[in-house]
Design a protein around this nucleic acid. Structure first.
Length: 282
DNA sequence: ATGGCTGCTTTGAGCAGA
């Protein structure tokens, strides 16, 4: 199963890039962040025409997450958007069709949050959790404390999810660079947002659940990043950060054969500031 | 040293992103 994550920074603007990338990369499951679309505006028909069923949870202007799953020919039904909090046509949750998104959950249960940042679903026995972790803006700001509180709630919920779903993958924009290797200029960024000690401790808290950073299971090029600032020619100069991650529970990590940052979409005209990351698991 | 770009917003300057 090829699992991918991509912060598209407006699905309305980036839909052509997404459709091209689905055709080129052929992922089985895709987690999208920053769709910035209300639910009624989600481009379900275009995505269905590309062979993917979808679930989504959005809002106006900010945030917004979605899950795509490559649907086998038999269960494709173009023109019937299937945001299946109440699944239709994918079989029952007990006997889902291959590729079906079941047990769809938006948000962290019990954590009040108007911001649409979490979407989980089960696909072929894998619990896939798509997250857009808060940015935090500046260390010790209100948004920073919200980020830390949010990560605490996520971690507590995932501890529970892992009991029921030993095969679990957590993908998304974490807004945390876990290590100095993941920062173009660690000295300049020391103690700043995305790299502060408390943020990195929360990332470690996710690893302490038994999750593993798929990217670091393999030898990787130096200065591998997943986001580059639009300003100051960040991409051309490779002034980036690795803040988009795929964490896998032990059974999935054991069967993981590759994890790659695909820089191709970042080279296109009018790109997202993030580029896709994918992992292949058996 | 600073800000540098992009997307969005009841449209136009300000916010947010990271």
């Amino acid at each position: 199963m090829k699992l991918a994550t991509w912060n598209v920074n407006s699905l309305k603007v980036r839909l052509p890039h997404l459709l091209d990338w689905l055709a080129a990369a052929q992922p089985d499951v895709v987690c999208l962040q920053e769709t910035k679309l209300t639910d009624d505006a989600f481009p379900a028909a275009e995505i269905a025409a590309a062979g993917y069923q979808a679930a989504w949870s959005g809002q106006k202007t900010y945030n917004g997450v979605a899950l795509l799953s490559r649907a086998p020919l038999s269960s494709r039904s173009p023109g019937r958007p299937k945001n299946d909090l109440a699944p239709t046509g994918g079989g029952s949750d007990d006997f889902p069709e291959p590729g079906a998104l079941t047990e769809v959950q938006a948000g962290i249960p019990g954590f009040e949050d108007e911001q649409k940042r979490v979407l989980a679903a089960t696909v072929d026995g894998v619990r896939v959790v798509c997250v857009y972790i808060p940015n935090g803006q500046a260390v010790d700001s209100d948004k920073y404390h919200y980020k830390l509180r949010w990560l605490g709630a996520l971690t507590a919920w995932l501890a529970d999810e892992l009991k029921r779903h030993p095969r679990l993958a957590l993908l998304g924009d974490y807004n945390i660079a876990p290590d100095d290797r993941d920062v173009h200029d660690p000295a300049a960024w020391e103690g700043q947002i995305l790299v502060s000690e408390r943020e990195r401790a929360r990332f470690q808290g996710l690893l302490d659940l038994g999750l593993q950073d798929a990217f670091r299971r393999f030898e990787q090029p130096e200065k591998s990043f997943s986001w580059w600032d639009y300003r100051a020619a960040g991409f051309r100069r490779n002034l980036g950060m690795r803040i988009d991650h795929i964490l896998l529970s032990a059974p999935l990590a054991a069967g993981c054969t590759a994890c790659v940052i695909d820089k191709a979409p970042r080279k296109l005209e009018r790109p997202s500031d993030h580029t896709p990351v994918w992992a292949e698991t058996s």
